[in-house]
Design a protein around this nucleic acid. Structure first.
Lengths: 130, 130
DNA sequence: GACGCAATGATAATTCATTATCACTAAGCC
DNA sequence: GGCTTAGTGATAATGAATTATCATTGCGTC
């Protein structure tokens, strides 16, 4: 039977409160501030189960490890900062995506990733936003 | 000094004539039909040099190996077929992408990937396009 | 045609993210 | 409080893409 553990509770809480998608490593770090000692294997196991439950969605960014966020968020896209590497949620969608679909093709979904410099890195010196 | 080899000629020709971005493995296979015996290491070396020259661009699709295409193509996006795995060029762009940029962020570029079933797979039975 | 060295090709090594292993821990039931 | 066994954590193993190694090949020059 599925047992309730303090590790899993911490992981779920972290993902519940996250405003942006997190990598397994980020989940581990943040979970450990709630409940120290959680191993990376436990994070992977929990994430896998939560994705299978449909409670988490996988966010794939090219050249980046997978990130995970709650599946109940409305349709949105992502911003990938090339300075700090963080991934942020971006509200909205251009909306006229499917009209790009070539003849004979069927578009089932789409992923849009903005790339640039996030607000935090813009206000920090050492990075040239231009 | 940079020498002209039959291997590099074949690789360049393959990329010159490619209508869609190719993975190193695809480049190797196609190059070998022009000039048999080209090793994967040679493909990686040639691609790396061509990207550094600015003649090739890297196309990154989540969960897929990198693909490469000529850098002189006009702005466009990509379609990733979930059946055969191929990546196709898609003309055009929604155009109003940057207005999604959150306050304080700077968008330098964007990547849009359509996912679904390509024309070839749609006409082949065994795949349900819906 | 001979020579020097850049390029090649086979393959080992590396680099990651992710998964498997296994002894130990602790949740839930008595 | 004990028992059973699912869950955990440290780490080895795996898988896949890419890079390094090194003996050999062949381009470009003399």
């Amino acid at each position: 039977m599925q047992r309730k553990t303090t590790q899993r509770e911490a992981i779920v809480q972290v993902l519940e409160e996250a405003s942006d998608p997190l990598t397994p490593n980020e989940i581990q770090e943040e979970s450990n501030s709630l409940r120290p000692g959680i191993g990376i294997a436990t994070v992977y196991r929990a994430v896998k189960a939560l994705v299978e439950d449909g409670w988490l969605t996988t966010v794939e960014i090219p050249g980046e490890p997978n990130r995970y966020e709650r599946a109940d968020k409305p349709h949105h896209h992502h911003f990938h900062c090339r300075s700090c590497g963080k991934v942020y949620d971006v509200e909205g969608c251009p909306g006229n995506i499917k009209q790009l679909t070539p003849k004979g093709f069927t578009t089932e979904s789409h992923e849009l990733t903005l790339k640039g410099i996030c607000a935090e890195c813009s206000t920090t010196n050492g990075v040239n936003p231009g």
